[in-house]
């Protein structure tokens, strides 16, 4: 589902060059739940962003769902992300001015779907994360765990094949974190969604299919 071939990422600023990723080759199978661990600054987010086509590698080749990615700009790429990928971020990134259901609806705005159908799909996604009674709330009225569940609903509303989650439980206490992980597990097992999750929590990682470790931009395990 995700194939990385000798992927490197170098950030060049005026003063220094940082090698965030060094020659990473990695395959994530369809339906696999992979977790990535490693110390802070070792390149986990960079790797996830490259898998999610949010950033281009400096070197190497990225293949998603059998398609070689070369051009990261423009409409076709936006459409590709919209259809294949869902994202969950550590800091939720909900849109404060939108109600819960409107937040969940966002990915569908960029498809040719009627307003009514969008609302139905968003409702279903909220049902799936157990928040159907919070549709009209605004993000500021929710707890951290609820916010992250809204973010999950947003990630799954478009039924993507791949979900990329960057420390989704990082801002949550362990009870809420477990809730979130259970939802992801469910999606992975029942919907056959491929999931890549960055985490700092060994216990979370142990519940996934496979774990890789990064150190200083290189894969060490």
């Amino acid at each position: 589902m995700i194939e990385l071939d000798k992927v490197s990422k170098v950030y060049t600023t005026k003063t220094i060059e940082t090698t965030a990723l060094n020659d990473i080759s990695l395959n994530v199978a369809k339906g696999e739940f992979l977790s990535i661990m490693g110390p802070s600054g070792c390149g986990k987010s960079t790797l996830l962003n490259i898998m999610g086509l949010l950033d281009a590698p400096s070197n190497g080749q990225v293949k998603i769902d059998g398609q070689n990615i070369s051009n990261y700009l423009g409409k076709p790429m936006a459409k590709f992300r919209n259809e294949k990928l869902g994202f969950i971020f550590q800091s939720f990134h909900l849109i404060a001015d939108l109600s819960v259901i409107d937040n969940v609806e966002v990915p569908l705005l960029y498809r040719k779907i009627s307003g009514k159908e969008r609302k139905e799909m968003a409702s279903r996604a909220l049902d799936a994360v157990g928040l159907s009674n919070r549709k009209k709330h605004f993000p500021s009225q929710l707890s951290g765990g609820q916010k992250q569940r809204v973010a999950i609903a947003r990630a799954i509303v478009g039924e993507p094949k791949i979900i990329l989650a960057d420390e989704p439980t990082g801002n949550l206490d362990s009870v809420m974190g477990d809730e979130v992980l259970d939802i992801l597990k469910y999606l992975n097992e029942k919907e056959d969604t491929t999931i890549v999750m960055v985490t700092h929590d060994e216990r979370m990682a142990s519940k996934t299919d496979r774990l890789i470790r990064l150190y200083d931009g290189s894969q060490v395990a």
Binding site: A78, I95, P107, L109, Y110
Partner: peptide
């Protein structure tokens, strides 16, 4: 900008 980042991640193009 966070909103713009999210929208683009979820498939908004420049025109949108």
């Amino acid at each position: 900008s966070s909103e713009i980042g999210v929208r683009k991640a979820f498939g908004a193009n420049r025109g949108n």
